[in-house]
Design a protein around this nucleic acid. Structure first.
Lengths: 336, 336
DNA sequence: ATTTTCTTTGCAAACGATTGCGGGAATGTT
DNA sequence: AACATTCCCGCAATCGTTTGCAAAGAAAAT
């Protein structure tokens, strides 16, 4: 019931608490003989160090916070998986907060992070966050921050993301190579950097080929459910031969609408998406996609944050992850 | 840079640290006048309480651990969502650990929980966990535990789960009512309680109707990928008219196999699943399912754990959540 | 034999907050 | 005017661990 402390051990062995502490930490000042005595006693008494006390004394917390705006079924699980991998043999534990895309909650979380004296914060800003004062407050408190996914590029904060422009380019370019010219791009919330950049990638391909961008082919939705109303109209247009979706969630809704309208992939409609890969590989036929791996992102993000922690802010401000095209069977060739 | 402490405030205002502490905690011993002085000073100096020190002194940690065997795309996000909802206006923060279905890692996590002096642990045991010594070790350390999802019913530990038997019964019974008699049940790892109970539910329906259970209609797989090899044989059998899957993951793989074989739902094959509901509602046609809500489970679990914490273990050992049938369009009626 | 060096250990303060106890001043009661 | 209450506040210990410094004893060097 009562927890064994270093003091209990010291009384048992008739040595000071300092000796116990040093012995357990393998300090060179302590003789091998006493080290063994102490360790054996600790073992037999089932002593467990009190991390609270330890970290408190050391003015550390051993905590890294992960702040997410929401729990997304396609990205979050694999992302956390990656984060955990990076954390595996680190001395840090993971505290998770959820902002529900609410700026007020996000600020409240920042407050908690400061109070907890977390050592680092890995955060995807909420959709509605436009200013980064609260993040700077974190840095002012000596807490290392790293933004991912939803970053604000103008801000001078440490960030990590994939090369969104190139990722979109790769996907749309593939459709182009197969002869498609009427490609609908489906994107998320226009305010997000991630969206802007992927739209830019889409447009780049048209520009590169000297063709005009049809702006009614660029679809942006705030909520993916909106696709259930918009897509039927798009899919009815016989001109459109290919669709590019910028995320798994949008791909999910798009796929279901395609099925609802009894269209075949790729005969009636070609499809390419930026995706983690699970959904594309489990669909029939398998969907061609540009791999934006949640796990890779999670691992890289946590790895760089830990590196930041070890060499206080010495790392580069912006880390960009590359993506690869995974060709499956959702794109057909058409004559130009 | 340097953090403001209660001592800084006490020097600034020429009062003792005890007064500062009491003033900030609205202790009745302190006059309104000094309370105001202290609060104003704290505000202007941007003082933030050090939770580490506070909890350490109070012999508490303010931490609740969530231990998951893996990150599942269908269940985990909504579950964590629910957990966060329950945590929202509680004084606890959430620490997340992942056991990767490895007993050794699970024990290691338990160790960490003890060292951190977390106040409660919400845990889904790993697939390979058969003994609960390590959980008892937690309880012995005075930490409240609550098992969910993958529970061990024989153990005398606090647990929460849905009524698995009834949930399966509801699903299979619906197929029966619509005239189906050759129903294949698709289940997960046989060692898990959750599987055993759902299989039992499946069998109960046959028994109730005085029919024998065909054991080649009860399919159990350890990894859902195995379905890609097994399902083609099952789906070719013209006798089978209905499928019952016990989880979203299995439904996912089943759906894709049905599509691969160009079978129509429900004309060629009727389908019912236990599910959170996202996948069934986004498929075409919408799949009929027994709602096992991850969010509801997460919220209920964390709510009861917090209740346990407040009235030290006074709650009932086993909490069982009910489920509802959601009828969509994946079951056709056939003549008996 | 004296000094120096090295090895091994203990003393006590510190980290930041909380809290039981005691006491001085102000107020109230006869 | 003497006493009892009440109101505010400070002293000092405490939580469990780490760590700078001192020190005692043994070994080595002179």
């Amino acid at each position: 019931m009562k927890r064994i402390t270093i003091k209990d051990l010291s009384e048992l062995l008739n040595v000071s608490t300092s000796t116990i502490s040093r012995a357990l930490n393998d300090h060179p000042d302590i003789s091998d003989a006493t080290k063994k005595r102490v360790r054996d006693a600790a073992e037999s008494m089932n002593y467990k160090a009190n991390l609270q006390a330890r970290f408190f004394r050391k003015k550390l917390s051993g905590l890294i916070a992960l702040v997410l705006p929401e729990m997304n079924m396609f990205y979050t699980p694999s992302f956390i998986d990656g984060v955990n991998k990076a954390l595996e043999d680190s001395p840090y534990s993971l505290v998770i907060f959820q902002s529900n895309n609410d700026v007020k909650q996000e600020k409240n979380i920042v407050e908690q992070c400061i109070q907890w004296a977390v050592e680092g914060v890995l955060i995807a800003l909420s959709k509605n966050t436009t200013s980064v004062e609260h993040i700077q407050e974190l840095e002012f408190a000596g807490i290392e921050c790293l933004l991912f996914d939803k970053i604000l590029s103008e801000s001078q904060l440490h960030s990590i993301c994939i090369d969104n422009v190139k990722a979109a380019e790769k996907g749309v370019e593939l459709l182009f190579e197969h002869g498609h010219r009427n490609i609908v791009g489906i994107f998320g919330n226009r305010n997000l950097n991630i969206t802007k950049e992927r739209v830019m990638g889409y447009e780049n391909v048209y520009i590169k080929h000297g063709l005009p961008v049809s702006y009614n082919h660029v679809v942006t939705v705030n909520e993916p459910e909106q696709l259930d109303f918009i897509l039927p109209f798009i899919l009815e247009s016989s001109k459109v031969t290919g669709i590019f979706t910028m995320s798994d969630e949008l791909l999910f809704y798009t796929l279901n609408n395609i099925r609802r309208m009894n269209l075949r992939i790729p005969e009636d409609m070609s499809l390419v998406s930026i995706s983690d890969g699970i959904l594309p590989n489990q669909s029939y036929p398998k969907i061609t996609y540009v791999k934006d791996s949640g796990e890779k992102m999670g691992k890289s993000a946590m790895d760089t944050l830990i590196r930041q922690l070890e060499q206080k802010g010495a790392s580069s401000k912006l880390t960009i992850l590359s993506t690869d095209l995974v060709e499956n069977h959702s794109v057909r060739s058409i004559d130009v």
